[in-house]
Design a binder for these strands. Structure first.
Lengths: 229, 229
DNA sequence: CGGATACTACGGTTTCGGCCGAACTATCGC
DNA sequence: GCGATAGTTCGGCCGAAACCGTAGTATCCG
């Protein structure tokens, strides 16, 4: 069964703590330099370099050379979805001593996950859309209703423009901090980018966390009946 | 980042060749005894026992004790989806010496993947439904059209009964042998079980492969305009 | 009860791979 | 050109874990 060997190879790549840290920090979709990743991984630059070489050779990462910097990023959305899936299992799997306080509060509140929103904000947004009957979410799929299209159009997301042939899809993604699904897929991505565009949320420096602005707080309340703590 | 450690733990579990073999043979959704898995893993029963214990403790597998046998199976669909995702990137990732002939022809032709159909049959079925405009498939989502509901109903799948509140969803799943999406999700599962029910396909002993019966060949041709080699 | 089968527990060996220190190459700013 | 920064390569050390042989427990069958 030659295919299982390939699976093992990918698993082993994820299976090292340093590499897992690297992959984890790259799940926000942005590219990072080798040095930044070394800091995130908690190992020396030399060691990090080796890890990055392996990950790149295996096509999990891609590199952009820019002057003396090398920007690493996830090679494809496929890799991002795989990491999501692994995280989902990891969140449920171990009965181990998990100290919930260890998870950064800001991250737990709101963060980006490749191209969409996660954390309490992401989950709350999904819940709000479900409550308004704008979307229907199941275990392994989701659907935008007619009402949902209307809501999203009102929010400034043009579903038709998003592609006549390439449909805009709605995919649930299990949130590892909240253990409940949030919105991924093209709908999730469109929602997130529209929120950035409106200035409702802003990326934090050196973190996957995002902060909800004052305007965003009002906006989420008005548009989605969503009250954030 | 305590969460990356959990991810690494899961990755390390997948990352051993013996364990990868075990997980891979369990992706067909059936339960297997420790001895059968030892054979599949290619290591001694003692070693296998240790691996199974680790996988079970991490909640990737679940056990059913029956007499002196222990039946191991994937602990949840979540684990199945994770393995699908890992396989998908493993299939794309390595430029390594991959000998395509090594993949068993029967497996390549048709097999089960947790609860749905994969291989050429699975991909062809998905293609046929797309061609008939019964479903729309994108990278990370799918949708059943009105025409699709009609086709499926004619095939004996009652979408309404499948759940009023729990909608029947359509999810693409990248096939590692064909490198193209086939149908997963509740639609994929319903299709597969209906095919078994009609006697169109049959499980092979000691393999994840399935064979298309004579009746199945006619049925696929008549119902889905699908000609199999 | 007694032998056979299914599985698990323990101990010792060996290999694999992560890690860092030191040294090397490439780019930037001056 | 020169020093500084970003990044990689090399070599040696060391710990974790996979593996099997042996031995032990549970279950089936006659």
């Amino acid at each position: 069964m030659t295919t299982a060997i390939d699976m093992a190879m990918v698993g082993a790549l994820i299976g090292d703590p340093a590499r897992a840290n690297i992959l984890n920090t790259l799940t926000d979709g942005r590219a990072q330099t080798a040095t930044e990743l070394a800091y995130a991984a908690g190992v020396s630059p030399q060691t990090t370099s080796g890890h990055l070489a392996k990950l790149t050779e295996a096509r999990l990462l891609a590199v952009n050379k820019q002057g003396r910097h090398r920007y690493y990023r996830l090679a494809s959305p496929l890799v991002g979805r795989m990491l999501e899936a692994v995280m989902a299992v990891a969140a449920v799997a171990p009965p181990r001593h998990r100290s919930p306080s260890k998870i950064d509060d800001a991250l737990r509140m709101a963060r980006t996950c490749y191209d969409h929103l996660a954390g309490r904000l992401g989950v709350a947004l999904a819940d709000a859309l479900v409550a308004k009957h704008g979307i229907v979410l199941g275990e392994d799929g989701g659907e935008v209703t007619g009402e949902g299209s209307r809501i999203l159009a009102g929010f400034g997301i043009d579903l038709a423009a998003a592609g006549q042939q390439r449909r805009t899809f709605c995919r649930p993604c299990i949130d590892w901090s909240e253990r409940r699904p949030h919105l991924a897929g093209s709908i999730g991505a469109a929602l997130a980018s529209r929120c950035f565009e409106l200035g409702w949320i802003e990326r934090q420096r050196d973190s996957r966390a995002v902060t909800v602005t004052k305007r965003g707080r009002r906006g989420f309340a008005n548009t989605f009946d969503l009250t954030l703590p």
